[in-house]
Design a protein around this nucleic acid. Structure first.
Lengths: 170, 170, 170, 170
DNA sequence: AATGAATGAGAGTTCATTCAT
DNA sequence: TATGAATGAACTCTCATTCAT
């Protein structure tokens, strides 16, 4: 791929992330092209389908989250990650609004990263030993969805997380 | 309103509930009309706008939930309600997918019903005294969203609820 | 026809005249029914087609104009009639907005009434002898149309009429 | 703009002029697209709204008239322009049927062109000195409307114009 | 004779996708 | 490779007209 093509790909992804975060997945592809500063044809050359574009965003986003999770650790790593993710949920609507789209590989990498955090938290005794990864992921996703659709303020977020954290604790 | 008109109104609401549950709020009004067995004009006579239709569904759904909640009570009423709601979430996508639509009155009635359940659970000692209604609602909505988008099986649902219930317990 | 049916017919015509005067011929029949205080079916029972309703209004309106013209006369009758008609044009948009509709009989009665006024004006010497009825009608209709679409103020109307009256004068 | 897009724009305008002349402003945009030989989306790409399309036609038409008027002059220029315009009125229904649409700039240019013709006619003594531009425009528009709605034949047109010209004369 | 709910063709408009330039 | 004009199916909504009540 030529250098300028690669550059366009990035610009399109950035634009798409912003547009879909702002307006949801129903935003128009043309809007994305406009913000990216390219023509609509260029978007479709890089991503033959709107769904492909959505999947690409989601993939990149999940990769970033996995990376982010990997930098955390220790007794409170999982809690920090929860708080960070839920706090950003409303701003990054995309994480959450893409029911139909699936990117298994990217998901499983995030899954592993969260699993790692869970292991450490359990080793440190911050989280009960019989809690398993799937329900932790389920809680994480649920809270993000809830925060997005509910428009939580900081206090409500903290009180809600407090309940979940208590449930995870020994 | 005439009897047949009333009947049609119900059929349209039923059809809309099913169609929007299946395809999300972006499903077409025409599809609703087809399933209801009426012409498209009839739908718009009863609900002048697509949003009016969505709001009507949501309102009816919330009313049913509030009614349902009102029949419960005692130490475990809140837990039963949680489990029941989360279990139905995926089937009734509508509850959850209607971010834009608002029916304040119906929401606040559900709010009150849940508050009542919470009071009783706290009186019975099943739930910690410092938990308040807003975070309970937030958890409820979050778990519904999560169950919907995540496609949980029964086991995952139970394990996830178990964490939340533990967090709510004394 | 029963008495109440007759009464309904009048109320529908009155309502239609007002509605179409306000919104033009593209106003909806339902709006007419609402203003008349009857159901839509009743409108269509009396006037099987929207065009029939428009024609009926036009006919009644032309009849009134002919009647009105018949009460005038003398040297200035024609001028008075011109001024009166043009002045009302914008308010009674209907006269003018009904290109497609035709009611020959009613038109010819108005035609005759205007012819009568013309004869008297010519006998009195207020109007040149070689002016004939068709161009007088043409001017009358033109000025009404112009006044309607142009939104003339009183001064512009007078100055415009002044030119036409001068052209008609000896 | 690309050459083919420009060509399509023209074709759409030509088609719209013909269609709206034939059926009035209530003709459908789809009909315009069909006659222009383009898909409906192309019409809306060039003119995002039906009103935009109507305004564009009107603007082009008025520009042509202003241009036409500018080529005339002398003692009889105004009269020639009147006759020409009124003669075409029925064929170009559009001039007249677009009450709602406004294109102020184009109108005022025509206004000026007519003012110029009036000045010259008054200088040549063909038109009375105390006649002003507004009533001339009012007469022009009125006669066009009248000719359109009345379906005048040539003789009636001439006799009607004769009255108006006499009114304008000294 | 009156009601008003139901019909369904048709309107304006949008947008993912294609393809000539 | 990029452009952006063209496509056309699909959508929401309107309204003259019909017909069961």
């Amino acid at each position: 791929m030529r250098a300028d093509a690669q550059r366009n790909r990035e610009r399109i992804l950035d634009a798409a992330e912003e547009v879909f975060a702002r307006c949801g997945a129903s935003a128009s592809t043309e809007e994305v092209a406009r913000l990216a500063g390219v023509a609509i044809g260029t978007v479709f050359r890089h991503f033959p389908t709107k769904d492909d574009l959505l999947a690409a965003i989601l993939k990149r986003l999940l990769a970033r989250l996995a990376e982010d999770a990997a930098t955390l650790g220790g007794a409170d790593g999982l809690h920090v990650f929860f708080r960070r993710l839920v706090g950003q949920a409303a701003a990054k609507r995309t994480v959450v609004d893409l029911a139909g789209v699936s990117v298994p590989a990217a998901v499983s990498r995030l899954d592993e990263a969260v699993g790692e955090l869970l292991d450490q938290a359990q080793a440190a005794g911050t989280v009960r030993g019989d809690v398993r990864r799937p329900e932790v992921m389920a809680l994480l996703v649920s809270l993000c969805q809830g925060a997005l659709h509910g428009g939580w303020d900081v206090e409500l977020q903290e009180r809600t997380l407090a309940v979940v954290f208590a449930g995870l604790a020994a």
